[in-house]
């Protein structure tokens, strides 16, 4: 099981944000993206998730069960800045929808809704409309979405924004559990997540690329 990123470059408007980024992550490995605001962390993660057409390069997912030509995005969970939950629906309805819409990827199984809510520390409130929750609780519930359906690769874009210290430790524990099960994690973050066996990629933004180009 392997996620390979091969010479990926992406462009926003006229500017090349990053150029020729390559790395390979195997089971249980993680990659932390660091860098100041605007350095292209989110752009790289969106390109890997297949949400942004890369200027060049490709993202390849290799595993035993994978068919040829399968998009790498299908093996990924993406947690972006927005929570992808509907304020009008209850937390349970939201999670049930995503559980059934995602379906489990080959090689693992997701938790039940109750277990996932317990895992992020918000067991008793799944009946409330998502819009009633505080920003931190909403973020935790958005994270619970990753637990209800199995995907080997988690792409996390600033997962700990708007969270208190206890929630950060909960997230770190969940990420470690996922890595322990043979998952792969790519995260853009400012907080040290305290992971072992981690590669770090320091993004410099288009200024850095320009310097290296010229």
């Amino acid at each position: 099981m392997r996620l390979t990123v091969d010479a990926l470059s992406a462009r926003r408007g006229e500017d090349l944000i990053f150029k020729d980024i390559s790395f390979t992550l195997g089971a249980g490995e993680s990659l932390i993206l660091t860098g100041r605001n605007g350095s292209g962390k989110s752009t790289l993660l969106r390109a890997i998730a297949g949400l942004l057409h890369p200027e060049s390069g490709r993202v390849i997912w290799i595993s035993d069960g994978a068919e040829d030509g399968m998009r790498a995005a299908e093996a990924c969970h993406y947690l972006g800045h927005r929570n992808a939950m509907k304020a009008e629906l209850s937390v349970r309805e939201n999670l049930e929808f995503w559980q059934s819409f995602f379906g489990d990827f080959a090689g693992g199984q997701g938790m039940s809704i109750g277990e996932a809510a317990e895992a992020v520390g918000l067991g008793g409130i799944t009946h409330l409309p998502f819009g009633y929750l505080s920003a931190g609780q909403q973020r935790r519930m958005a994270f619970a979405k990753l637990l209800v359906a199995w995907r080997p690769v988690w792409i996390l874009d600033e997962p700990t924004a708007a969270l208190d210290v206890s929630a950060e430790s909960v997230f770190t524990a969940l990420i470690k559990t996922h890595l322990g099960k043979g998952g792969i994690v790519l995260a853009a973050t400012h907080q040290p997540l305290g992971l072992e066996n981690t590669q770090e990629l320091k993004m410099t933004g288009f200024a850095g690329v320009m310097e290296s180009m010229w």
Binding site: L51, R71, A73, E74, Y78, R82, W98
Partner: peptide, 13 residues
């Protein structure tokens, strides 16, 4: 699109 669901919908198989 506004709440980010569209991204996840686009990623599925």
């Amino acid at each position: 699109r506004e709440d980010g669901s569209l991204d996840l919908i686009l990623m599925q198989e």
